[in-house]
Design a protein around this nucleic acid. Structure first.
Length: 582
RNA sequence: GGGGGCGUAGCUCAGUCGGUUUAGAGCGCCGGCCUGUCACGCCGGAGGUCGCGGGUUCGAGUCCCGUCGCUCCCGCCA
């Protein structure tokens, strides 16, 4: 139907007779000459309807409206020098329309394809096919495609085999809430949609596949966030006979290739590495954003026995006083400081103390009168604070103090414009194997129960499980967790011990994980792997703040699809077939 | 489950302490004029269940209660 794409035409094409197809983007009707920007996937080109060339064609041109679909034939012509548009890739040429075929008319769209600024999310999703016509959204899909293509090529070059694993699978008690699918052939039983292909990829290693990958959809029935959807895409990998360092190095190579091929950015490897404990203590987060420093400082030693009871009491109760220096925050208004206090309270702190540092290192603060000269000078020393800064304090248990300041950290950096542009990768390693579940008081897996404990800590398994570290590594980019992986257990005895610590009785173990325990008996190789979140990575590469904008048809925060109406009530007949209703 | 923000024309928004008339603006839409525009320009016009339901009041877009939708966050989760 066409000879060329609109956005590709250049001076090289002058005098060629071309046939183009596309949408009316904009129309500038001068009564005589009519200019239309014709749009297809490649971009825009100006087409010209001249009444002196053909009255009939010109009349059609006059009737055209945005989003009408055209096929046009015409000659590529140079634009008069003074009318060249340097803002348009095709701005040196235009098409003199000789014939036009209106392939389809469009009603006035509910919002404009050339709309600048935000449109209501619900409306965008209801008319997603129009939303995706917008240049920015189309670019996002094309970027995602280029990332996928580069990743596939890299994995293929590195001897990975793509294997599809089931979407209808078995619910397991660990991890997130499952999406369930009722079975018709086996009434009252349910499949679960996979939270990840974790066990299948381990089984593929036991199958001797050596290296596996898959662009896997992962489903989790939990509440949504800007960076969380009920289904997301993982680029899932697993390898046999590989060390932790080998697996991490391979993902670094993959990231280098992606950033080079897709963005033309040269990353440097190896990426910095930090243990989980370091990350938590220094930055109050297991995914710290290192585009800025703002470390959390331990001020406990300074305030032991302080007259300021809030601090000294927290310390005598076995807690801590932690501080963070906010450079230049002295210009914060009282109201802005209060907002940070409210945020700290929302994160679980009992309060947020602060010192405003004035010229000559004088201190202004509601708590200053409780602090000695000596304490103040030591705090200024410990935080390297200067005039114009604020030092924020949280006195609490170590966990709370560090996490509250860790949550405050990126907010301060953003407000104080301390975020350096760039790509800050960071490996966080040596995660704990287990955590104490706050509600039940039970031991729970930090990642999942198939992780290989480190050789140094495996001895603590039965007596002090919270001391046990896993061979686990997360890759963080600009404060966003984009990949997560680890070495897996390949011996059935150890796998049983881990499950037992997590409270699984023998019969539950057999029921839930019997197939894995069985498979591990038959020569399972040492193996490990990781998965990176394609949506999040593409979001960051596109400079966006929500993965919805890199997913063609995402869900709203309440899990709905305004376009299709999913989820929806189903016919009673269907429920009867499933034996869910009589 | 909890906290915050938003909901007024097709879109994006303004609407003051509850009372100035018929709820406005920009864009879009419709009609007219216009032969070098490119966010074309000029003239004219249409377009409103102020999300929905109650309540308070002489009077509600504005206040109160409930509810629905979108969104950000906590919990949860990756």
């Amino acid at each position: 139907m066409r000879t060329d794409y609109c956005g590709k035409l250049k001076k090289d094409d002058l005098d060629r007779d071309v046939t183009l197809c596309g949408w009316v983007h904009r129309r500038r009707d001068h009564g005589g000459l009519i200019f239309i920007d014709l749009r297809d996937v490649s971009g825009l080109v100006q087409i010209v309807f001249d009444p002196e060339r053909s009255g009939e064609v010109h009349t059609i041109g006059h009737s055209l409206r945005p989003e009408d679909v055209l096929q046009i034939k015409g000659k590529v012509a140079p634009r008069p020098a003074e009318t060249v548009n340097p803002d348009l890739a095709t701005g040196e040429v235009e098409i003199n329309v000789a014939a036009v075929d209106v392939l389809n008319r469009s009603e006035t769209p509910p919002f404009s394809v050339e709309e600048r600024g935000d449109v209501d999310d619900n409306l965008r999703l209801k008319y997603r096919y129009i939303d995706l016509r917008r240049e920015e959204m189309l670019d996002n899909l094309l970027l995602r495609h280029r990332v996928s293509r580069s990743a596939r090529k890299f994995l293929d070059n590195n001897n990975f085999t793509e294997v599809e694993t089931p979407v209808l699978t078995k619910s397991t008690p660990e991890g997130a809430r499952d999406f369930l699918v009722p079975s018709r052939l086996q009434p009252k039983k349910f499949y679960a949609l996979p939270q990840s292909p974790q066990l299948f990829k381990q089984l593929l290693m036991i199958s001797g596949l050596d290296r596996y990958y898959q662009f896997a959809h992962a489903f989790r029935d939990e509440d949504l966030r800007a960076d969380r959807q009920p289904e997301h895409t993982q680029v899932d990998m697993e390898m046999s006979f590989m060390s932790e360092a080998g697996i991490m190095g391979l993902l670094e190579d993959l990231m280098l290739v992606l950033f080079d091929e897709v963005l033309g950015v040269a990353l440097e490897k190896p990426f910095p590495v930090m243990t989980y404990d370091e990350a938590i203590l220094r930055y109050g987060s297991d995914k710290p954003d290192l585009r800025f420093d703002l470390p959390v400082v331990d001020a406990s030693a300074i305030f032991r026995g302080s007259e300021f009871a809030v601090f000294s009491r927290a310390l005598s109760d076995g807690g801590t006083v932690r501080a963070i220096r906010a450079p230049g925050a002295g210009r914060f208004t009282r109201r802005e400081i209060d907002e940070h206090t409210d945020f700290a309270l929302s994160q679980g702190a009992k309060g947020l103390a602060y010192l405003i540092i004035k010229e000559g290192l004088e201190v202004q603060s509601p708590i200053a009168k409780f602090l000695s000269r000596e304490e103040l000078s030591q705090v200024l020393d410990a935080t390297a604070a200067e005039a114009g800064d604020i030092i924020f304090f949280v006195a609490d248990t170590v966990d709370v103090a560090v996490e509250v300041l860790g949550a405050l950290r990126p907010r301060l950096a953003a407000e104080l414009e301390l975020v350096e542009p760039g790509w800050s990768f960071l490996w966080v390693t040596d995660f704990p194997m287990f955590k104490l579940d706050a509600d039940s008081g039970q031991i729970a897996a930090e990642h999942h129960p198939f992780t290989l404990p480190t050789a140094e800590t495996v001895a603590f398994l039965e007596d002090e499980p919270l001391k046990v570290r896993g061979n686990l590594y997360d890759l963080v980019l600009n404060g966003v967790e984009i990949a997560s992986g680890g070495l897996r257990i390949h011996k059935p005895e150890l796998q049983r011990r881990i499950l037992a610590i997590l409270g699984h009785e023998d019969h539950q173990m057999e029921r839930d994980f019997g197939f894995l325990l069985e498979a591990l008996k038959y020569g399972a190789p040492p193996h490990g792997g990781l998965a990176f979140g394609l949506d999040r990575l593409v979001m960051l590469m596109a400079g966006l703040s929500t993965i919805r904008d890199v997913i063609a048809f995402p869900k709203t925060q309440s899990g709905g699809c305004p376009l299709t109406g999913a989820p929806a009530i189903v016919d009673v007949r269907q429920l009867k077939e499933l034996k869910i209703r009589q």
